[in-house]
Amino acid sequence: MLLSPKGASRSLAAVFTPIKSRGLVDEVCGRIEQAVETGLLTSGQRLPNETELAAALGVSAVTAREALSQLRASGIIRTARGRSGGSFIADNVLPSRERALTQLHELSRLQIRDLALHYQAIAAACAGVAARRSDAADIATLRSFIPAEDDDSLSWRLALSEFLLEVAAIARSARLARELIRLQADLGTLTLLPCADSGYRGRTGVILEDVAAAIEAHQPAAAESGVKALIAATTDWLLTEHAKRY
């Protein structure tokens, strides 16, 4: 079993295991990591104690305690003792290039390719249905997720995943949307790497515009091939980077 140092929640290995086996502790850790990545929780901010955390997330105190200790071990939070003590979101906690590179090199080319195929299948299905069901308000929301070329890599990464989630929302299929969310969690911080490359940002920016236009014009085939091209651009970039190591 291949698990990343950060634990199973962000590991690509999770793609080969049933959802249930991820466990509640990983689920809680995943939620907190996600809250940090989306800016809901920021560095230096105090986290609730385990009783409050357990109540808020509807898990047992034991689960909350284990999750906090797992987050501490992976450097997401730090703990201070004493009167002003407690758990805080650590500094430099945002996904870093180093961490993403480590994750990339722990994966085989086969795993990356297989994940990309799955991602393409689900995203293309969403895009095809979205092109049938879109209205003007949907398109306005979708376009609001297209980032500007000079946005930093973290916001690009977030915008790309939000864009595809919005395509799933326009498709109005709960199953496809859930599957897409799971695939994005499996991809983890990997997608940060290409977003630092301006060439990649330029290429994908054009594709995002094309996908939005196809969904607006009710052209399912064009929308499907657009999102496939988007994911292919990411996979090609990752595999090229991966090869440099050998």
Binding site: R31, I32, A35, L40, L41, Q45, L47, P48, E52, A55, A56, L57, G58
Partner: peptide, 19 residues
């Protein structure tokens, strides 16, 4: 039916209104 709390983690964020 088990009254599972929704999005309660956001209550610990000082800028949760943005959500």
């Amino acid at each position: 039916p088990d009254l599972e709390p929704v999005d309660a983690l956001a209550n610990f964020s000082p800028n949760s209104i943005s959500r």
